[in-house]
Simulated scan of single mutants.
Amino acid sequence: MIYVVEDDGAIRNLLTYALTEKGYEVKSFENGLAIVDEIRENPCELLLLDLMLPGKDGVSILKELRKFSDIPVIILTAKNDEFDKVTGLESGADDYITKPFSILELLSRVKAILRRVNKVDEDHLTYKNISLNIKERTVKVDGKNLDLTFKEFEMLYLFMNNIGNVITRENFLTKIWGYDYQGETRTVDVHIASLRSKLQDSGSYISTVRNLGYKFGEI
């Protein structure tokens, strides 16, 4: 998910369209008054942030954001003085693009930052309030450790790598139990029920797709 904070409607719509066309999920905001709270509750992968915003300016938002989050931020602004650029970068921005800008250049920088972040954090998956560490084989929900069995962990890992996609019972059996497993698909349902129970409220992210299997993600 990419958040765009831009008060100019034309630019905001252009960014949303261009990013969506490239396959990114996008949520846009016309001012920065609610963005900090939004990121606290629903962290994004990348923030595109204008500096000159009504209500609260971009640098103030960035400084507040850096008190609790290290999500990558690209500043978009008409301010092209070296002082403004240094101020933005020293406040915690990862990149700085001045207006007017090339959409192709912006998309290239977005791709580069996300590639860098994902490469650094390839052993760590997050969705909403769920955090999964592949290397340590640990899962946290709202910051609290969750005790999962081996197969429950593997199922959650498969879900978090396929957010929004249907995973059939047969897929689960092949990928987790092994292609030569001779048991019934009912065992998948039993493990899903247990995983849902352990995830408590977050178990609602797992939805049943009738006659097919399951899907992970907010409905």
Results as ranks from 00 to 15, higher is better:
85 K>F: 05
41 E>R: 13
121 D>S: 12
77 T>L: 01
22 K>Q: 14
133 N>Y: 10
201 D>R: 09
66 R>G: 07
5 V>S: 06
93 A>V: 10
169 R>T: 09
154 E>Q: 11
43 P>S: 09
12 R>D: 02
147 D>E: 14
188 V>H: 12
27 K>L: 04
94 D>N: 15
124 H>Y: 11
174 T>D: 08
174 T>H: 11
183 G>F: 13
29 F>T: 06
19 L>S: 00
203 G>S: 08
113 I>V: 15
163 I>W: 02
51 L>D: 13
97 I>T: 04
120 V>Y: 14
118 N>H: 09
81 D>T: 15
179 Y>T: 14
182 Q>G: 12
93 A>W: 05
46 L>V: 12
23 G>S: 07
3 Y>I: 12
118 N>K: 13
185 T>I: 10
172 F>V: 10
90 E>V: 04
181 Y>N: 09
83 F>P: 05
32 G>T: 07
94 D>G: 08
168 T>W: 12
84 D>R: 02
59 V>C: 03
147 D>F: 10
205 Y>F: 15
173 L>Y: 13
160 M>T: 05
166 V>T: 07
215 K>F: 00
96 Y>R: 08
60 S>H: 06
216 F>E: 07
214 Y>Q: 08
96 Y>Q: 13
120 V>D: 15
188 V>G: 11
176 I>M: 01
46 L>Y: 05
15 L>V: 07
8 D>N: 15
117 V>Q: 14
199 L>C: 04
51 L>I: 15
94 D>V: 04
176 I>W: 00
154 E>L: 10
142 D>C: 03
88 G>P: 12
82 E>H: 11
2 I>D: 00
119 K>Y: 09
57 D>Q: 03
107 L>N: 13
213 G>W: 09
45 E>K: 13
112 A>I: 11
66 R>L: 06
162 N>P: 01
208 T>G: 02
218 E>M: 01
156 L>V: 01
138 T>K: 07
148 L>N: 01
198 K>E: 12
104 L>R: 12
24 Y>V: 01
65 L>R: 06
121 D>N: 15
188 V>P: 09
55 G>S: 02
153 F>R: 03
198 K>Y: 08
